[in-house]
Design a protein around this nucleic acid. Structure first.
Lengths: 185, 185
DNA sequence: TCATGCGTTCAAAATATATTGAACGTACAA
DNA sequence: TTGTACGTTCAATATATTTTGAACGCATGA
């Protein structure tokens, strides 16, 4: 294959591998997705193992993981016993899958924990000594800061997730919808 | 100390530790920051080691790391030989530090690599066989998708970084500034 | 209905990441 | 000007994560 094409392919696969690590996945997951993304035809597990020079077992496990994230789709090839995969080429779909299935969960969990903290502090108020009460107020303030951060994050996520074609809506400069929500500060 | 206060402290420290991992730092960095954030007074390295039940060495190394990220500040205590630290309590400053110093760098790097890819593909066009040319076009399309993703990310980052007090500007529903930029699609 | 090709699994090995603690040098209180 | 309490460093160790490859069993093309 032409040297330049090969170079582009390789740097893209490497770059997506890097991106994957950055996003808290492992590098192989990214490289698998990247390899499929840069392949005009679906690839089998063996193709992928060969291409990335990793074991069949690793391909199998990592593919399953990225399949769960909706990054790749199985493709049936007639008269073939092998499984073939292709990348989900709507990158925005992939991003939305990840954001809604992981970052969102994380944010909501954090908000819940912080909510509990506020409740605890309020409930305890009565039984506190003066110094403790001061500390409790200090905690309240810090917890409130954390909340505003997570609420902001939640809004950002909702905005991205609300868009249907993923990309900042074709016409309007981003969805304003979410910003209209009360920020509670 | 009151049980509830302790519980709030602990869950916050644990939560920030978790958040830190999520953001690609290590858990101890988060717990150190969290401990300082939940302390009304500055703490020494020994205080931190004791509080988190980790070694002095680990505290020293991890503190240095988060100091570089502007998460904590050194505080001088008169007549004291120890170093004392306090958390940078402007969380938005912390977030901006991290976003501008790491995520932004990552995005810019990706955009540069993708730009190179486009150049390579264009330059190679001449010398390609018909099939290769088809593949090159396919690559072009995929690279363009990736670019639009990173450009979107760059915009999101710029928007957050542009705000001065961090939080979605006091009055307007988020900064629109960045969305006015040409998305080049 | 086979026999085989294929994906999956998982314990063991390899690698990557984080922690420890003892040794060391230095700044500072006395 | 000390002696020492402190922070730093880093090799060794521990832990977490990833990969491997052989064993297994199931689905499928013949």
């Amino acid at each position: 294959m032409n040297k330049n094409l090969k170079a582009v392919n390789e740097s893209t696969v490497a770059g997506i591998g890097r991106l994957a690590r950055f996003f808290g996945f492992n590098e192989v997951m990214g490289r698998l997705y990247g390899t499929l993304l840069m392949s005009p035809e679906p690839l089998s597990l063996d193709d992928l193992a060969e291409s990335l020079k990793i074991s069949k077992g690793s391909v199998s496990m990592n593919m399953r993981a990225i399949e769960r994230w909706g990054m790749v789709k199985e493709v049936w090839m007639r008269g073939e016993r092998k499984k073939y995969y292709e990348a989900e080429s709507d990158m925005w779909q992939v991003i939305r899958n990840v954001l809604s299935g992981r970052e969102m969960r994380e944010v909501q969990l954090a908000l819940q924990v912080l909510g509990n903290s506020v409740d605890k502090l309020r409930a305890a108020e009565e039984e506190l000594s003066p110094e403790e009460r001061e500390l409790a107020e200090f905690y309240m303030a810090r917890v409130a800061d954390l909340r505003s951060f997570f609420e902001f994050a939640e809004m950002m996520l909702q905005s991205v997730l609300a868009t249907d074609e993923g990309l900042p809506p074709e016409n309007s400069p981003f969805e304003l919808r979410a910003w209209d929500l009360d920020r509670g500060s």
